[in-house]
Design a protein around this nucleic acid. Structure first.
Lengths: 342, 342
DNA sequence: GCTTGAAATGACAACGATGTCAATATAAAA
DNA sequence: TTTTATATTGACATCGTTGTCATTTCAAGC
């Protein structure tokens, strides 16, 4: 398998290697005639530029990074599959890195990755996407980045990113429970380092307010996005003088923990207690009863993030900085954990 | 942010860049004194070799690939975290790729990845690790690879890889059920494209044989590693004249499906039906009751795979091809799905 | 025909590492 | 001490590409 280099193409086309480089990179100032000669040679030899040489020499690089710090394997998997699919299609490489958002030197870690791997752009998932130190740093060095996080697309601000409107979705779920007649609804929230946590709580509070129900702080618990915290949280609720009739969980894992704990105490779901999750992760379908939840198209979200980032890195758009943002609204999925027979 | 190159290290350590290169690459013929000086400088400057430059110049590259085709997100996550941790420590890059092992052009896909990204080695997880076409191809082109799959370490063969002794573990679980007095034990297996599936079945059969119990083919179902197949499989078992008293599942997902379906039919677990899973994935702890299962240290396994692959790529060992293999035996974890109160 | 500016092209250095091979330091043998 | 073998080190070319800058080509304007 002989290696085909730019020299071979140049020789065959009868031009200099620099001209081949120009054609391959779609630069200006190449005559139509030359361009077609070179393209023919490229095709005949099946020439592919050497990525390492490009990355080594070029100012532009074709490598993105994706950072995650999330125990939710399904979420990370969806993200990375979506990103990879889009990046590889567009001839970008994607480096995937786990990291600890609470590490004191997190900014340095990010900085090292960027410089060492010469990243052209970075994709951040929550809670890293919500870390102001990291964002400030990226702004400072002017690296294109995409945050995949919670919020409303704020057109008019310079906040680029992909946003999931957890606020609205959470309100929908709350409304769903209210419609079923519940008035004492607890909220077992995840890690407040995630923007989503705040927004989901806000949606819940808005929902209650609209229905004219006072928010009872004793019914709101904050912890982390894990099954174990679901168990823990419900144990705390059990200590209350009277149980709520419904619990909204920060995500499906927490909901599964609550469900588990309810079962231990012989509380029937949904008859005595309605439980709703969030995220529509696979195991929201694998509990008994299945969990009512809010569904977001994670793979699609990731693909979109990659698309926008690539657009940001393409200098061919005319000067102006387009706003690169997009908003997704999770959909309510009603299942047996809130409504018998659903 | 200044980029740290080998020149900076050389200057600080007071040696030539070539000597730094030797230390970094663990080559022979460097005095202990020089080595420690250089290592100190590397550490002080936090120097990391540029992967592109290495890849471009060297005959050896420092990029591994990891291929997965597995719907079990927790498994893939554990694998990639373990591999990344080891690879990055040793200054190897790791490219992560999902792929479809049943694609007709799978070998070409693998080949393209290897050549286009100039991989130094490849790590395969099941079922890709069990695909003979891929393995044959890798042998043919002489690319170092590590299979992470099921089997017994067969010292003496040239079969390099990381093996999980599913056979023994499955037999342990079977024995556990036999000890509890079960004699009619069904097996709901996963996808037979995975070597693990065959080996787990073998362990089950051996377990029954040792106890002098005849294997009833009607109690053995083969499908795929999913919750849905667990549901489907149990529905089939329900059609039998009489139900088994215990079911062994190919993995935890299948077990969760069985558990779900049993609950739908008001069958108490473990009283009327004992269920055991395999893999000790997080949601084996998130069902009610929790699942008895077999636990394997996936992250550790992955890290070991990377270590062995790196060793294979290091020419500094004296000529001979060491056997690079390692075997892990999953441990039985007894929980409430087979034993009340466990 | 001559100047001129822009378009088109090429020569050459550079990116950051490793491979080759020659030079030097060190230890062992004579 | 001198010779010889070996261990240690460094100078320099090199990998395949792109950036810089100089050069050539060409059409338009005088």
């Amino acid at each position: 398998m002989k290696k085909i280099t730019i020299h071979d193409v140049a020789e065959l086309a009868g031009v200099s290697i620099k001209t081949v480089s120009r054609v391959v990179n779609n630069e200006a100032s190449v005559s139509t005639n030359t361009k077609s000669k070179v393209n023919a040679a490229v095709k005949e030899l099946n020439y592919k530029p050497n990525v390492s040489a490009r990355n080594l020499r070029g100012s532009q690089t074709f490598i993105f990074g994706m950072l995650y710090d999330n125990t939710n394997a399904y979420f990370v998997m969806d993200m990375q599959n979506g990103l990879l699919s889009e990046c590889l299609d567009q001839n970008y490489e994607l480096l995937i890195r786990p990291c600890n958002s609470r590490a004191p030197d997190i900014v340095k870690q990010v900085s090292d990755l960027i410089h060492h791997s010469r990243l052209a752009g970075l994709i951040l998932t929550s809670p890293l996407a919500d870390n102001p130190d990291i964002i400030d740093y990226l702004r400072e060095i002017g690296l294109p980045y995409m945050r995949i996080t919670s919020g409303k697309a704020a057109i008019g601000t310079c906040e680029d990113g992909i946003f999931v409107d957890d606020d609205s979705a959470s309100m929908h779920i709350t409304n769903h429970l209210l419609t079923l007649g519940h008035t004492k609804i607890a909220y077992v929230a995840g890690d407040i380092a995630h923007q989503a946590t705040t927004n989901r709580l806000d949606g819940y509070i808005k929902g209650l307010n609209k229905a004219g129900i006072a928010v009872d702080e004793a019914l709101i618990l904050k912890g982390e996005y894990s099954f174990d915290f679901g168990v823990e949280g419900f144990k705390q609720l059990l200590k209350l003088p009277s149980l709520p009739t419904a619990v909204l969980a920060g995500n499906d894992e927490i909901a599964a923990g609550i469900l588990y704990c309810a079962r231990l105490h012989n509380i029937s779901v949904p008859e005595d207690l309605a439980i709703a999750g969030f995220e529509n992760s696979p195991f929201s379908r694998q509990t008994w009863p299945k969990l009512t939840t809010a569904s977001q198209p994670n793979t699609e979200i990731a693909r979109r993030a990659a698309q926008l980032l690539i657009k940001m890195c393409r200098p061919d758009t005319t000067g102006e900085h387009d706003i690169s943002q997009h908003c997704f609204i999770p959909e309510l999925v009603v299942r047996g954990s809130t409504q018998k027979g659903a």
